[in-house]
Computed example of a mutant assay.
Amino acid sequence: MQREGLFREMRARTAYEKPSEKRNREEAEAIRRHRKLARKKMQREGLLPSPKKVARPR
């Protein structure tokens, strides 16, 4: 549910969000997405080490 953004959407709908706050939040999300894509691209190109995989017990 968290990956789908359900919790974030529920929180956003509970109270009014001022247009300036919405604009700031959306801009911050866009920056975060851009940085994540850039980081993944650098990992694919071998410029950054890949994250360690966590062994999950079964």
Rank of each mutant, 00 (worst) to 15 (best):
K18G: 08
R32P: 00
R3C: 03
A12Y: 04
R13D: 07
M42G: 01
K41R: 13
A38V: 10
E27P: 00
E9V: 01
P57L: 12
I31Y: 06
E21C: 10
P51I: 04
P57C: 03
R13Y: 05
G46F: 01
R44I: 05
Y16N: 15
A38M: 11
E21F: 15
P19S: 05
E21Q: 12
K36D: 14
R44Q: 04
K53T: 08
A12H: 07
R13N: 03
E9K: 07
R44P: 00
E27L: 12
R13S: 07
A55I: 11
R23N: 10
A15Q: 14
K40T: 09
E45M: 09
M42C: 07
K40Q: 11
L48W: 03
P49A: 04
L48Q: 04
Q2D: 09
L47Q: 11
N24T: 10
R13M: 11
K36H: 15
L47H: 11
A12E: 08
G46C: 02
A38Y: 03
A38G: 00
F7H: 14
R58F: 02
E17K: 06
L47R: 13
R23Q: 15
Q2C: 10
K22V: 06
R39E: 14
R3V: 02
L47S: 07
Q43P: 00
E9I: 04
A30E: 15
R39N: 10
S50D: 09
E29C: 02
I31H: 05
R11P: 00
E45H: 01
E45V: 01
S20H: 15
S20A: 08
M42E: 14
H34N: 10
S20G: 04
E29N: 05
R58M: 08
R44K: 09
P51F: 03
R33G: 00
E29R: 05
M10F: 10
G5W: 00
T14C: 08
R23H: 13
G5F: 01
R33Y: 14
A55E: 08
K36F: 14
T14G: 02
R11W: 02
E27H: 09
E4S: 10
R35T: 07
Q43Y: 05
K22P: 00
L47Y: 12
K36G: 06
L37N: 13
E29L: 14
E17S: 12
E9L: 14
E17M: 03
E21Y: 06
R25A: 05
M1C: 11
P49L: 02
R11G: 00
Y16H: 15
